[in-house]
Amino acid sequence: MNTILSKQRLSQEVFRMVIQAPEIAEARKPGQFIILQLGGDFNERIPLTIADADPVAGTITLIFQAVGETTHHLALLEEGDSIENLLGPLGKPTDIEKFGKVVCVGGGIGVAPLFPIVQGMKQMGNEVKVIMGARNESLLIMEEEMRATADEVIVVTDDGSYGRKALVTEPLKELCETWKPDCVVIIGPPIMMKFAALTTKPYGIHTIVSLNTIMIDGTGMCGGCRVSIGGKTKFVCVDGPEFDGHQVDWDNMLLRLGTYKPKEQEAHHRCHIGLDIKEGEA
């Protein structure tokens, strides 16, 4: 069960794995995620968004960045290995409907879970423009797939090593003014989602974000993932992961994400061993 059928390194620290998981593949819809645990008593449970699924072949695709200890261990697994514990699909699917004009914004690894939403939005007959950003060229993923699916793709990098030198908020603001989208979907690092959501707010555009908070069980039992949405406490695992970006209490969410920060930095330093990633680049 949960056998890794293929593994690909998309960039220095980003990997794509196709995994045999027929039941998850059958039930899964865009926007949903899985939780995995690599076996034994001491491994942690981590949530990862399902990037794609093939219900006929019975496979799901995960795209992940090796940034923590578990994602590093995952990246060291090879084709034919299996993931001991895999639970899903979790969370509510993305609300994909006919909005008209849609902008999908992806930052870093967030481009991966954004892709099935771009596909879904297209299938529903929307006109879709994509803004994808990364710190530098080597961290950009899935540009080809996006170009083959979306009506227009705008690529930005923080350092200008590829595409336009800008943050995603710049072209987003321009599109809000000139193209006037009916809906904006944003997936990426929390700080990027915060500022992208703030960008669309003055225009009153319906804005969806996908949150990835600290989580253990993924079934609504622990409440560790809770966020404040419009003043009400919601659980990302069962009420989300997608919420109205204008209702999220971003500052509280960012603080909660930092709950274990000192310990994670320590672990991060240790876990680069074995993957040939230079310190400072990941």
Binding site: G223, R226, V227, N252
Partner: peptide, 21 residues
């Protein structure tokens, strides 16, 4: 399995846990 909270101010600060978590 659905933890109750009190609904008081500050319940989402860093360092507040449900007993379940």
């Amino acid at each position: 399995g659905l933890p109750k909270f009190l609904g008081i101010d500050g319940e989402n600060y860093v360092g507040v846990f449900s007993a379940n978590e």
